[in-house]
């Protein structure tokens, strides 16, 4: 899947310094649980996101342990206090050791 790892971060518009804002993220990924089978009945090996890190500037503010039960193309949304202008960077890692990154600027 050529698009695996393509990621998106959406921040709201019109916030000001100190506001708590909601970040919405999507990372294109098959999220195979390891429990599914293909058309010939052969098991599909697990291939899913295992962790997500959230960096705000130089500081890691959040990290996540992700399992195959998160749907295909993981949608994960969280909140962050917009205390200063800095990039919000999200890093996804998966069962094959792939690392995907996406950033969005928080401007206050």
């Amino acid at each position: 899947m050529a698009e695996t790892g393509k990621a998106l971060i959406k921040l709201p518009a019109g916030y000001k310094k100190g506001d708590v804002i909601q970040a919405q993220t999507i990372c294109i990924h098959p999220q195979d649980t390891g429990y599914g089978k293909d058309k010939e009945g052969k098991p599909i090996p697990a291939f899913h996101v295992t962790s997500v890190e959230v960096w705000y500037g130089e500081k890691k503010i959040s990290d996540m342990e992700v399992h195959g039960a998160i749907s295909k193309d993981p949608y994960i949304s969280f909140k962050v206090r917009a205390s200063h202008s800095a990039p919000l960077k999200v890093v996804w890692k998966d069962t094959k050791g792939n690392v995907f990154e996406q950033s969005a600027e928080i401007k206050v």
Binding site: Q24, H67, A69, S71, Y75, S77, F78, K79, R81
Partner: peptide
């Protein structure tokens, strides 16, 4: 287990939204 998130005060709010199986 579906997902587990570690938070800090910098999150400003304890909130998590996902789409799950």
């Amino acid at each position: 287990r579906v997902i587990s998130v570690n938070l800090t005060p910098d999150n400003g709010a304890a909130y998590l939204s996902v789409r799950m199986r």
